[in-house]
Nucleic acid binder design. Sequence first.
DNA 1: TCACATTTGTCCGTATGTATG
DNA 2: TCATACATACGGACAAATGTG
Lengths: 265, 265
Amino acid sequence: MSLPRTMRRMSERRASDDSRNTLPAARSPRERRVSSQIQREVTQLILDRRLRAGAPLPTEAELMESLGVSRNSVREALKALQALDIVEIRHGYGTYVGQASLTPFVDGLTFRTLARQADDTDDTGALAEILQVREVLEEGLMRRVAGELSDGELARLEAVVDRMEEAGLAGRPFPELDREFHELLYAPLGNALVPQLLGAFWTVFRRVSGVRGWTDDPAPAVTVRRHRDIVVALRAHDVEGAQQAMADHFRGIEARAAQESRGVG
Amino acid sequence: MSLPRTMRRMSERRASDDSRNTLPAARSPRERRVSSQIQREVTQLILDRRLRAGAPLPTEAELMESLGVSRNSVREALKALQALDIVEIRHGYGTYVGQASLTPFVDGLTFRTLARQADDTDDTGALAEILQVREVLEEGLMRRVAGELSDGELARLEAVVDRMEEAGLAGRPFPELDREFHELLYAPLGNALVPQLLGAFWTVFRRVSGVRGWTDDPAPAVTVRRHRDIVVALRAHDVEGAQQAMADHFRGIEARAAQESRGVG
DNA sequence: TCACATTTGTCCGTATGTATG
DNA sequence: TCATACATACGGACAAATGTG
């Protein structure tokens, strides 16, 4: 295989393997840690070659060879990139370009929230901050999308609410439907980052709630009603009304979060 | 040192070192990869002990000992956690609890944007998406904060704009002042996540712009004016006007991004 | 300034688990 | 079932960075 020019630099500064223990390695002052350098090299390799998610990357042995570094350094670099979802490692199969999803953002935000909940004076501070950001975002998104929704999209939204009601009456929780509703609502924007960001906040909220053993929505009927109010307002082209319904929806979530954190938790 | 209960599990399932090459390791079916398990253990250790950012963590040798795993596995796990800014590793000194900042979010978003810019049909698609999210967020934040700003805070905002004007007239770019303005603007909310999120978007935008070799704001005078318009509107308690000024500000950024991506870039 | 101990960084060699064909 | 290719994990050794006496 032939690697691009950027992949050759590190091997050049290590001409003979025999000199490893005799010379001071002669490392360029710019590149401090081998592992960090490998991270940059692999990332650059993906960008230079315009590799898409799922495309195969060089094996560990090939990276060792072309970069002139040990397996350990390669593995540590790949582990770090895996944590960022920049690469995906499949045991016994190979290494591939990752999805570059917001998974690391979710992981980091979850850790943050759990770590700072019992900390100092803040109680539900971290979680409330996430909720506020999500609310502000959705409020603004709603204003943008209110006039753009077609009848077909409104019908699909209503169908989701119907399924919510059905699930609620059957006593089944419907977190996925809630998520689907908000995702569908902002689809007309054509912004792929929006549903991912909202999904990230949603996942963090659920994970933190799960750790604390909260129940799944104590009042599903109310939740269904909030969503239906949104659709009704949107059908009537009532931007303010839709925004108000969304605000009411969030007020319910906040109340629940505040209540449960003080309660049995 | 004494480690909490959660740190003991892995060593228990490896009673004798001699059996390493004779028995099939007898690993619990739940926990597939040793490295991933160590990540969870260390994260849980931080949460259980309520360690704050900067607090010292067990050394690699101590983790090997208490978890009954090899140094390589410990290092790979710590490298992954370092990428998420959950731990911080200092060469020759020790390992510490990280800041849990949005650095991994910035890294991931930057990679995403660079990887998808020359991809397929989308040109400035990814960057435009980030700008739109930031605009929607700031629009909503502005509405919330408009009535809450004190005279002192408005004066500080105006002082930042004055420094912008000064820098602009001197021909110096003022990206940091721009950032400071937006940070100061939403300070009354008391939401620590807000400035970090906006800062993340801001950093991604600058990094991507830097890679493409864009210039620093071709029309600084206009940028200064936009910011002053915001302060003036806020002073007059004109929420709509402030929002409009903010929208104009973003329209300028978008135009610049679209223009430069088609130009010499 | 100079050792010195401690801790992380990198390397090597080997054995094992896992997926594909 | 078998063989191959690959990632996973182990142990030991030395290099490099940092803090301390």
